[in-house]
Design a protein around this nucleic acid. Structure first.
Lengths: 152, 152
DNA sequence: AGTGAAAAATTTCACTC
DNA sequence: GAGTGAAATTTTTCACT
C-alpha cells in the first residue's frame, strides 16, 4: 500500500503526540474526524503504526546513564550468535542490540543509574554472556538528542 | 516524589501500550479507575511520563537501515561542540546524538532506506558537519531488538 | 484509595455524496 | 475516498465513604 501526503501528515503528528484525540488530529491534517479515523485504522492494521508507547523521563526515573557496548564474539556460527542474542535479550537494562557489519559483531545500548550501576550490570550480566572475545564500553557524557520519530 | 509498586506497574504497562484505556489499565494494575487515573495524571504532571508517541515500522516505512556514526572533532571548545550539535540537529535522518567519553567525541544513530541512501545522507549532510576530524560509519546488518521501555 | 454517578468528549458505524 | 450525524464507549470530574 502506498502512503499519500495526508497519511504522512498523520504519521508525523502521531509520532510526536501518540495520544492526540482523533478530533484534534483530524483538525491538524485537514480531514473530517471519520475520514481521519479511517486512515489511522488502516495505518494500524497495515502495520505502518506498530503501536503506541509512553516515553519516560530517564533522569526522573534515575536511569540517566547511557553506555554503548561493542562486543566481538570468538566465533560467528549461527548457534553462537543465537545463544548470545538469547542471553542479551534477558538483560533488562539493554535497550537495543544490533548485529553489525565490520569489526565489532554487536553494539548494545545499555542504560544505568550511574557508572557504579553500570559496573553492576557489567559484572552481573555482560561478563557472563556466552562466546564473547572482546568487549568495549563507551559512556555517553550527555545525550544531545534522541527521538523515536522516523523521518516521513 | 517517590514511586511505589503500583506506579511502577502503571509505567510498565504504559511503556508497552501507551493508548490503553484507563479502564483496562486500572484492571491490569488492580486499582479502581479513578485511583488509577489520579496516578497517571500525577505521573504526567510530575514529568515521569514525558509523552506518548506512535512507533512506526521502519521496514514498512522503507527505512530499515541503521548506521552508527562515530565522529571525532578537531577541537573540543564549547563553541565547536555547539556548532556541531546545531548542525546535527537539522539532519532529519539522525535519530540520536550522544556526546561520548573517550576517543570518539560523538556517536550518531542514523536511519536510511539502504546503503545508497546512506551514501546520499553522508554526502549531503555528514561531510558538511563543522569541525569534524574523523568519521567512521558502522552498518547494522540486523537489529536484534530495540525498545523504548526503561526497566522500571 | 475506593465507589457511584453525571457530564463531557471521543470513537465507531451506517449512510450519503 | 470524504462528509454527516447518531449511537456506543471512554474519559473526566465530583461528592462521599
Amino acid at each position: 500500500m502506498d502512503l499519500d501526503d495526508t497519511d504522512r501528515r498523520i504519521l508525523r503528528v502521531l509520532q510526536k503526540q501518540g495520544r492526540m484525540s482523533n478530533a484534534d488530529l483530524s483538525d491538524q491534517v485537514h480531514l473530517s474526524p471519520s475520514a481521519c479515523h479511517r486512515r489511522v485504522q488502516r495505518l494500524e492494521t497495515e502495520g505502518f503504526i506498530r503501536g503506541y508507547v509512553a516515553l519516560l523521563d530517564a533522569r526522573k526515573m534515575n536511569m540517566p546513564t547511557t553506555v554503548f557496548v561493542e562486543i566481538t564474539l570468538s566465533a560467528q556460527a549461527d548457534e553462537v550468535l543465537e545463544a548470545f542474542e538469547k542471553a542479551v535479550s534477558r538483560i533488562p537494562d539493554v535497550l537495543e542490540c544490533h548485529l553489525m557489519a565490520g569489526t565489532a559483531d554487536y553494539i548494545l545500548k545499555v542504560v544505568a543509574e550511574d557508572t557504579e550501576d553500570f559496573a553492576r550490570i557489567h559484572r552481573q550480566y555482560l561478563t557472563r554472556l556466552p562466546g564473547v572475545a572482546q568487549m568495549q564500553s563507551s559512556f555517553a557524557l550527555r545525550t544531545v538528542f534522541k527521538t523515536t520519530a522516523l523521518p516521513v
